[in-house]
Amino acid sequence: MRKVVLLIVIAVVSIACKNEAKKEVVQKETISEKYPKALAAVFDKHGGIDNWQKMKTLSYTLKNEEHTTDLHSRKTVINAKEYSLGFDGKDVWVSDTSVYKKDAKFYYNLYFYFYTMPFVLADDGIVYSETKPLEFEGKKYPGFKISYNENVGSSPDDNYFIYYDETTNEMSWLAYTVTYHSKKVSNKKSIIRYNDWQNVNGFLLPKSLTWYKKHENGNPTEPAREPTKFVLPLLSEASFDADFYVKPTK
C-alpha cells in the first residue's frame, strides 16, 4: 500500500517540478573541491552528487521486504508481511519482537548503505585516502579508503574501500570492515562486486550485488553466494510526513 502512495506522491511532485523548473535557479557546488578528483568522476558517472542531493525518498524491495528511506534524515521503514521495523529519527523500532528477533539497530540501514553506493560515501564526516588497487582476473581497479571522524554514526571505526573502473568511472567493488557488534577495530574485509547496474530516475544504482570470496592477498576470487537482488526501485524528490516512519500503533 505504501508503495502505491509513494507512486502517487512521485507523480504529483513531478508535475509540480515541471511547472517550477523555469523559476528555479540551482547553485551547483564544484564537487572536485570537496572530494578526490577520481572519486568525483565516479559520482558524476552514477548521476552526480548535486542531483542526488535533490532526491528525498528512496524505496526498493529486497526479498520479501519493502524498504523506504528518507535520504536526508535517514528515517526508515521496512515492511514485510509479518512485521515491520524502522527508524523514526530518534529510535529504532520493531512492530512485533516475537516475530522479528534479529538486531534491528544493525539491520535497519544495512542494505541502504550497500544499495546507495557510491553516493553514501559523500556523507559528512568522511576522510578520504588512496588505497592499493584491487585486482581481479588480471585487471586492476584503483580505489579509495573511506574512514570516519570520531563520533560519526554508530560505528565510526568502520572502513570502506571503493574500487572503480578507471576507463568507465563506474564503481566496481566495495570492501568493508564491521565493528558494530565487537566495537573493536577490525582488519577483516568483506568484498562485494558491483557490476549489475540499472538506471533509476537518472542514477546508476545496483540491480544486484554479489559477495565474493577472497584470496589470502585480499583480492576477490569467486562468488561466495547467489546475488542479492533489488527490485521495484523508486527514487523521488517527494518526501513523506514524519508519521510515515513512526511505529504503527497496532
Rank of each mutant, 00 (worst) to 15 (best):
Val5Cys: 03
Val5Pro: 03
Leu6Val: 03
Ile10Glu: 15
Ala11Thr: 06
Ala11Gln: 10
Ala16Lys: 12
Ala16Ile: 14
Cys17Asn: 15
Ala21Tyr: 01
Lys22Asn: 09
Val25Cys: 03
Thr30Glu: 06
Glu33Thr: 09
Pro36Gln: 00
Leu39Gln: 04
Ala41Glu: 15
Trp52Ser: 07
Lys54Ser: 11
Met55Leu: 08
Thr61Glu: 13
Glu65Asn: 09
Glu65Ile: 15
His72Gln: 14
Thr76Asp: 06
Val77Ile: 15
Val77Phe: 12
Ile78Ala: 07
Ile78Trp: 07
Asn79Phe: 07
Leu85Ala: 01
Leu85Pro: 03
Gly86Gln: 04
Gly86Glu: 03
Asp88Ile: 04
Asp88Lys: 08
Val94Lys: 07
Asp96Glu: 09
Ser98Glu: 12
Tyr100Ala: 03
Lys102Val: 00
Ala104Gln: 08
Phe106Val: 04
Leu110Ile: 02
Tyr111Gly: 00
Tyr111Glu: 11
Phe112His: 13
Thr116His: 04
Phe119Lys: 08
Phe119Gln: 01
Phe119Gly: 02
Val120Asp: 09
Gly125Phe: 00
Glu130Lys: 14
Leu134Arg: 14
Glu135Tyr: 05
Lys140Ser: 12
Ser147Asn: 03
Asn149Gln: 11
Glu150Ser: 03
Gly153Cys: 00
Ser155Phe: 00
Phe161Tyr: 11
Tyr164Val: 05
Thr167Pro: 00
Met171Tyr: 04
Ser172Asp: 11
Ser172Gln: 14
Tyr176His: 08
Thr177Asn: 05
Val178Pro: 00
Asn187Ala: 12
Lys189Val: 12
Ile192Val: 15
Arg193Cys: 10
Gln198Asp: 06
Phe203Gln: 14
Leu205Asn: 03
Ser208Met: 10
Leu209Ala: 05
Lys214Met: 10
Lys214Ala: 15
Thr228Ala: 05
Lys229Glu: 11
Pro233Gly: 01
Ser236Glu: 04
Thr249Ile: 13
